[in-house]
């Protein structure tokens, strides 16, 4: 499946609830990036493994995740 997860990085607070929710374990908090607010934003480690279930977006308290699929 071709899918795309977009994270509005500067709005992300790095809470990690998306990491906890992802059934494919392909989300993590960035180990290298800091956003404008000083948080490590969430990122997708393996986009190809994404099944576009949107669990990450549904649990995100800050509505920063957009999920699309073909």
């Amino acid at each position: 499946m071709v899918s795309k997860v977009t994270i509005d990085e500067n709005r992300c607070k790095g809470c990690g609830l998306c990491v906890r929710a992802c059934p494919k374990k392909i989300m993590q908090l960035s180990k290298t990036k800091l956003n404008e607010k000083g948080y490590h934003p969430a990122e997708v480690t393996d986009q190809e493994a994404c099944i576009a279930c949107a669990s990450c977006a549904r649990t995100c308290p800050d509505a920063v995740i957009t999920v699309e699929k073909e």
Partner: peptide
């Protein structure tokens, strides 16, 4: 691409 989820207006 079809949107599965995005922030509501």
């Amino acid at each position: 691409m079809k949107t599965v989820f995005k922030k509501t207006p």
